[in-house]
């Protein structure tokens, strides 16, 4: 395990349409010049009703399609809690073993998905744009806490300077609880479509990586995450066993309905020999 090559994981999250895929596309181009092998896992939500999805991130990165050192995989988040992170983490390990480094993880910041990204990524990049409606006030609760780096994209659009100023003053006002004082998330202005600010973004990611390595924080996080992932896998296995037991054992299911004892029944199933 220790000797296995491990990919550095960069998460990109933010509201729909802020330019995450375009930024990733530009970053891939820069990283290829540095001769890095880059993998991307891009997630989009599935419809909760049909399970279907249009996975639309790849279209922005398709110019790298024929480069064998760029691997792009779209994933439906499949709409169930934890499912994305389990699938993504397993893919990241595989891609790392194949020599891809970094692995970039893109997720639309709706619902809980941005928290899932932050729980997987070594560096989390939160992408904002000038047209966030009522300025930066619109930023969702919780998003400030997870950002290691802020990108204000679409620097070519009007209102960009105001957005930058607002974000700066907001960050200086908010004393984010629990956040390590030693790392102050930098704010990087970019224009993904013009490939501007991409080198600065990469430099910021690199300095965050060095910060994690030199302070030992990276190692602590990795250890915590491995434990947390194990707990999630266990929960997934337990869920599966309980569902199967209830489907295969009608008498048990009937007794559950009669007695209405989910805790007791769950324990009974998990105590069974397999």
């Amino acid at each position: 395990m220790k000797d296995q090559p491990k990919a550095y994981v960069i998460g990109f999250t933010g509201a729909p349409g802020t330019g995450k895929s375009s930024l990733v596309d530009a970053l891939i181009a820069s990283l290829r010049k540095l001769d890095r092998f880059v993998a991307v896992i891009a997630t989009d939500p599935n419809s909760p009703f049909t399970g279907g999805a249009i996975l639309g991130d790849r279209i922005r990165m398709q110019r790298h399609a024929l480069d064998p050192r760029v691997f792009i995989r779209s994933m439906g988040a499949r709409g169930h809690l934890g499912g994305l992170s389990l699938a993504a983490r397993e893919s990241i390990r595989l891609l790392g073993a194949f020599g891809f480094d970094p692995v970039i993880l893109e997720t639309v910041g709706v619902g809980q998905s941005e928290l899932e990204v932050a729980a997987i990524a070594d560096t989390t990049v939160v992408v904002l744009t000038p047209n966030l409606g009522d300025g930066v006030q619109m930023i969702k609760a919780g998003i400030l806490e997870i950002a290691d780096i802020f990108v204000v994209n679409k620097a070519d659009l009007e209102g960009h300077h105001r957005a930058l100023t607002e974000l700066r003053s907001m960050l200086s006002l908010s004393n984010v609880p629990g956040a390590p004082k030693a790392w102050k998330p930098p704010i990087i202005p970019t224009s993904a479509t013009r490939s501007e600010g991409i080198d600065e973004l990469w430099a910021a990611i690199e300095s965050h990586r060095k910060y994690l390595a030199s302070t030992g924080r990276g190692e602590r996080l990795a250890a915590e995450r491995l434990k947390e992932e194990t707990a999630e896998v266990a929960a997934e296995i337990a869920r599966d066993r309980v569902r199967r037991a209830l489907a295969e054992d009608p008498a048990l299911a009937e007794r559950l309905l009669e007695e209405g004892t989910p805790y007791g029944t769950a324990e009974e199933i998990l105590d069974r020999k397999r």
């Binding site: 599935n46 419809s47 049909t50 399970g51 279907g52 999805a53 249009i54 996975l55 639309g56 790849r58 279209i59 398709q62 399609a65 024929l66 779209s74 439906g76």
Partner: peptide
């Protein structure tokens, strides 16, 4: 998508490769 499939659209001007 509405029928429950996962669709990956790659866009215009693609080559067979």
């Amino acid at each position: 998508r509405d029928a429950g499939y996962e669709v990956i659209y790659t866009g215009l001007r693609q080559t067979p490769e």
